[in-house]
């Protein structure tokens, strides 16, 4: 019974990580890839770690700590990369809708050139 539960959790988690991999491979632009690479694997690793916490004797605390670390750091890391990529030149960012940030960045550049 416990084995089945562990198996289902592990398969579901691995499936989510695989979906993230396919998304990173398939999506056409950088930010869409980042959406795939940050959300699904976080939940996937959480599921795998819960399974590990059930199945492995004596390792529950460390596994939960590892899951918590990834949970806390994944959005911050995504934010860093996204922010840096927006500022960097030579990265093709394709947007279908409005871009509220462009205006702000141009204001910043004007302020910098006036100094």
């Amino acid at each position: 019974m416990v084995d089945v539960l562990v198996g289902v959790l592990v398969i579901a988690g691995s499936m989510l990580i695989l979906l993230a991999g396919i998304g990173v491979l398939r999506f056409a632009d950088l930010y869409a890839r980042m959406h795939a690479a940050t959300k699904a694997p976080t939940v996937g690793i959480a599921l795998v770690c819960i399974a590990g916490a059930i199945a492995i004797d004596g390792g529950t605390d460390k596994i939960l700590l590892a899951a918590a670390i990834i949970f806390v750091t994944a959005p911050s890391a995504a934010h860093f990369v996204g922010r840096a990529a927006y500022r960097a030149e030579g990265i093709d960012i394709h947007l279908d809708g409005p871009d509220d940030l462009r205006e702000l960045m141009e204001d910043d550049e004007d302020a910098a050139s006036n100094d």
Binding site: F27, A28, D29, D96, D100, L101
Partner: peptide, 11 residues
């Protein structure tokens, strides 16, 4: 993918 992606940056 194709029909569900409609990206933008919103304030």
């Amino acid at each position: 993918p194709r029909d569900r992606i409609n990206t933008a940056i919103v304030a």
